[in-house]
Design a protein around this nucleic acid. Structure first.
Lengths: 198, 198
DNA sequence: GATATAAACTACACCGTGCAGTTTACATGT
DNA sequence: ACATGTAAACTGCACGGTGTAGTTTATATC
């Protein structure tokens, strides 16, 4: 790898680390250069301003997370099994270190500068991308009966987010795999009790 | 009221306003004194440091929110009505300007200094205080059937938080009263579909 | 006489720049 | 294959400008 690419990566790695642990505002460019083992001038040769560096970090982290499999409805498979696959993927995402990092950095910035709020809500990761069409297909197949599909999709996702994501985000502990399994089971039970055609 | 108390209140009001709209870090003590219509020296006569002022603000805001009526289970009243009263109170709290202010300020600080995380989780506001005993009574009365009561209580509260609180917190719009009513209805429907004894 | 005010001041941290000198990557000539 | 040249990138350091926490001093007001 070229030297300049190497340095660029060192800078981004350091920024990711420091922005996450100290917050963007509390990370000085001197500190950052030190951690990256790079001169401050080099940082500024790669990124014109601190804000540009911040944007680049967010972009890189989003790109890392963008992939992920999509679950499509299958009439031949029990609905609870399918929901469990969706939920398991989602919980894995929500509790992954990578996701928590980008979420923390992004949310901290959004709360300090509310004008950036759109950026966050627009980005579509995980099952949010496909849950609506999944539920639509399940309704068409007569397996579920839902009046307001986008709302129901949110109800499902929010269960997982509330139990898995926010507690981790705010620094309360992570869940054990057994606890996660319980959360998933109960989210599905709640959802199907309301929407499954019996 | 004594002059000094009057000034103290002006300072706290200004701090609450500015810490909320600009963030603690982006509020200077000069700006704060200006907004409070008080000299900077007076601010420092009341509060030794910016951090002490911040602590006092948090305390005052928590105290303001601490009161709130408690709903106790009543076997003679339909369960959905009782849940609706609980949920309505909770949504009013979660969407109130006062609660959003303290939450935003507190969460921003917690995310920057994770060692304060306990402070947040310990503070018990709204229906979180009594929901467990309410559900316990309802189970004893044979109206509900719940294996894990604390978990079920969280499921109920998290529905409201997810749809009402977090979107407001992150600067996405507030809900209309009609939307809030819908959120409450659906949270209750979801909950009762799973736990009501039929 | 206690308290408030205004304004200037200290001390420091930080962003971003300029620059002289060094290192790296690589092409060209022998 | 090896030396040499060169352009691009990196380094280290000093510095201007700015913002801010907290203090001091001198003055006014209740």
């Amino acid at each position: 790898m070229k030297l300049t690419e190497q340095k660029r990566m060192q800078i981004l790695d350091a920024a990711e680390e420091l922005f996450h642990s100290n917050g963007v505002e509390h990370t000085s460019m001197d500190q950052l250069a030190l951690q990256a083992k790079v001169s401050k001038r080099t940082v500024y040769n790669h990124f014109a301003t601190k804000d540009a560096l911040f944007q680049a970090i967010l972009q890189r982290m989003f790109d890392k997370l963008a992939q992920g499999s999509e679950v499509r409805f299958n009439a031949a498979e029990p609905i609870d099994q399918q929901l469990r696959r969706i939920a398991t993927d989602e919980v894995a995402l929500l509790s992954s270190a990578a996701f928590l990092r980008v979420a923390k950095i992004a949310i901290m910035q959004v709360m300090q500068r509310p004008e950036l709020a759109q950026l966050m809500s627009e980005s579509s990761l995980g099952c949010k991308r496909y849950i609506d069409s999944f539920l639509t297909d399940a309704c068409k197949a007569g397996v579920l009966q839902i009046a307001d599909i986008p709302f129901a999709g949110k109800q499902f996702i929010y269960q997982l987010k509330s139990f898995v994501f926010y507690p981790s985000l705010f620094g309360l502990e992570q869940q054990t795999p057994a606890q996660q399994a319980h959360i998933i089971d109960e989210a599905i039970a709640l959802f199907l009790a309301r929407y499954q055609v019996k």
